[in-house]
Design a protein around this nucleic acid. Structure first.
Lengths: 193, 193
DNA sequence: GTCTATACGTGGATAGAC
DNA sequence: GTCTATCCACGTATAGAC
């Protein structure tokens, strides 16, 4: 049941998936879905929140040394997305793009619970942590978009090792490289005085 | 009319936008839309193909020296997306995520007409050109996702200069840096013989 | 508890009056 | 040419029989 919902949300996004379709895919009656979950929103939350617990995988990422964090993050992302977490991840992304409240869900999950926590171990100021975290997120989401959403070659079929070797160093630069703080706001054109 | 369609597709994606909504936003009758464009598909094509001519902007990107190509690409992307091309871009992305034929549209437009042509000037083999192009695309799409779709701070409000400084070098590495060719296929586990 | 029937809204698309 | 009226399919959600 939840598996069918996850699959449907992953393939068509929140707005595109239908309760009727999910119910028939699961071999049950559409009315049962409402009986169990109450609404489409709650069904989505139940389908997506189950397999997305960062506490289970973050320690493995952080176990890498400071200079291997980038490669470690890419490796974890690939092993999750090429494992059982892909439907939930696709459901989140496909839904977030056209639906405001799922976008908020993804944004907060991603920034606060995942990337922020990884960058948070590096001892930066809050501003720099958020800036570096957003840069890391941009590369990782881009990888997900190309490999799993748009399915553009050769990245869609590339091996984990080759992607880690190609992308890991770039993520590493965002994490620990020297870079001017990506100004949170416009570099004030003319200071107050 | 086309502007209203672009805006609607940009905000809600292909599936989410409605002909009725576009028509009322444009102050015309819904039936007129069908009369002029024939179908929703053709309306979408007309709305996004207009302002998406790569031939107009690519020369400016390529005018940069080989070592400034990364920064130049990021600069052009930002100036397009913070300019009049944003609605068309958002319409393409929002639609491509949940709609197969628009996904194909975006994939081919992006890989063949944009990134591929930039990397194509660098004199790599076809395989390496495609691999580097896909890596570049992953970073650029990720930037678009974070800044314009998810609107995550601080990237959403960051200045062009700071983003070019932060992301340009990473794109540059994908373009001209030393990296093993991201293997187009799985590194053959056991060759034919 | 499970499902049939249905209310109620909203799509895209079309026919035909003016 | 423009728009009213309408067809038909499909969405969420609910009421109520069994």
């Amino acid at each position: 049941m939840l598996a069918a919902a996850r699959t449907a949300f992953a393939e068509r996004g929140f707005d595109g998936a239908t309760i009727r379709g999910i119910a028939t895919a699961a071999g049950v009656d559409p009315a049962l879905v409402h009986h169990y979950f109450g609404s489409k929103d709650k069904l989505f939350l139940a389908a997506v929140e189950a397999p997305a617990d960062p506490d289970e995988v973050l320690p493995a990422v952080l176990a890498a040394g400071r200079d291997e964090l980038g490669a470690s993050a890419v490796r974890m992302l690939l092993s999750l997305w090429d494992g059982p977490a892909r439907p939930a991840g696709l459901a989140l992304i496909r839904s977030a793009v056209s639906n405001e409240w799922t976008a908020k869900l993804l944004r907060e999950f991603l920034v606060a619970k995942v990337v922020g926590r990884v960058v948070g171990t590096l001892g930066y100021s809050d501003e720099e942590r958020d800036a570096r975290g957003a840069l890391v997120a941009s590369q990782l989401i881009g990888l997900v978009m190309i490999r799993y959403v748009l399915c553009a070659e050769p990245i869609a079929s590339a091996s984990h090792e080759s992607l880690i070797a190609a992308i890991g160093p770039n993520v590493q630069r965002y994490l620990t490289g020297e870079l001017e703080p990506p100004a949170p706001a416009r570099p004030r054109p003319h200071p107050p005085s």
